[in-house]
Computed example of a mutant assay.
Amino acid sequence: MTQPSSSGPSSGPGPRVLVVEGALRDNGGLRVSLDLARRWQDLGARVRFLVLENVEPDGPMLEPDPRLDTRWGSAQVRRFRSAAPRVLVNVLRHVRRADVVVSGSEVGYGLLLGWLAARATGTPFVVLVQSSLPRAVAAWTPARLRPALTAVHRRVDAAVCVSPGLVDDVLEVGLPADRVHVADVGIDVDARLAAVAAQGGPVRSTSGRTRLVAAGRLTAQKGFDVLLDALALVVAAGGDVELVLVGAGEEDERLRAQAERLGLGGRVDFAGHVGDLQALLAGADLFVLSSRYEGNGSLVLLEALAHGTPVVAADCPTGPRHVLRDGEVGDLVPVEDPQALADAVLAFCRDPAPLRRKARLGPARARDFDQQRAAVQIARLLAELTRR
């Protein structure tokens, strides 16, 4: 395993970098790859962003970034399956014009088609590993495609893990250690702080209750069902709390039904997607991460730390322990343990001082995950691959 150099790309014209994504679904992984692509471009690379599906996905999507040369796998607005032959031809055409190809995700058709086209043209191929490989493959990939994904994972020219905790998964599939790299991706702390000011300052509870905030796509991965069970235990023990749950996804109806069944209807705000997330995080009494697994510990966890908000997080694979520095910056609880999570919330409600002391370390810890440094490290790796 190696750490890409942070000394910056070499002088001269930058490489032609093709970033391949399946669709513009609004999620943390896509936001990371878009942000890195913009930064690579600022560093001198000639970046093209190729999106296979030219169709609005189910659920929220991100608009194409006007600062990037964004292309579509198919000129026709249709799902990937119906446009696959044309998409494959277009991927090959774009790869022929690239010096290096980067898959923004460790799963999906973008990874498979990008790798096939790169192999056909002899172009170096890099994958950003943003989540636990076995869990991501099981959650997001049809069974028939899993062997093909594993074959690609062990043959890429480089895998860049966004957190050290992801390395073992990559090594386990058989990729040689000298092709595995780590770049701790992060957030633009100053931009997050500025967003709060632009949104009129922190958004705080007006009910007098201790406000918990959680955020993420409403999927099984995020463990919001565990959080609701824990919230019910807190209320039963006398905790006067409320929860703002930010996000949308396929678990929405089931989670709403669970909240009603637990008698939490008046205490849980299913806020959906919001424009003032940073203000909500800054105004929260406590941020809670209940995930079953993560990539770099969830970017929203770093955002909460940036605002100095106290944090309780499930000690899930692969990042919260790394981000919270073994519990120095926030409290860690076992995964999928509603009682342990409830106990941590109750402890905060009864005496918030210990966790608030930890939270004062949060802004400095968030700055340890410097996104520009990560972009430079990866840009250096891409430049090295094109010279081999």
Rank of each mutant, 00 (worst) to 15 (best):
L264A: 08
L264H: 11
R267M: 12
V268R: 07
V268W: 09
D269H: 15
D269W: 13
F270Y: 07
A271D: 01
G272C: 01
G272L: 08
H273E: 15
D276Q: 10
Q278R: 03
Q278W: 02
A279E: 13
A279T: 13
L280A: 10
L280V: 14
L280N: 07
L280T: 13
A282W: 00
A284R: 05
D285A: 15
D285W: 07
L286H: 04
F287G: 15
L289S: 06
L289E: 06
S290M: 02
S290A: 05
S291T: 11
R292Q: 13
Y293S: 14
Y293C: 09
Y293R: 10
E294A: 12
E294S: 15
E294P: 05
E294C: 10
E294F: 14
G295D: 00
G295T: 00
N296E: 15
N296S: 15
N296V: 15
G297C: 09
S298T: 09
S298W: 06
L299R: 11
L299I: 08
V300R: 08
V300N: 11
L301G: 05
L301S: 06
L302R: 07
L302W: 06
L302P: 07
L302D: 07
E303A: 11
L305F: 00
H307N: 09
H307V: 00
G308T: 01
G308L: 01
V311I: 07
V311C: 05
A314Q: 05
D315M: 14
D315F: 15
D315C: 14
T318K: 06
G319Q: 03
P320S: 09
R321Q: 05
H322A: 07
H322L: 03
V323N: 08
L324T: 01
L324G: 02
D326Q: 02
D326A: 08
G327M: 02
G327E: 03
G327V: 00
E328S: 00
E328Q: 02
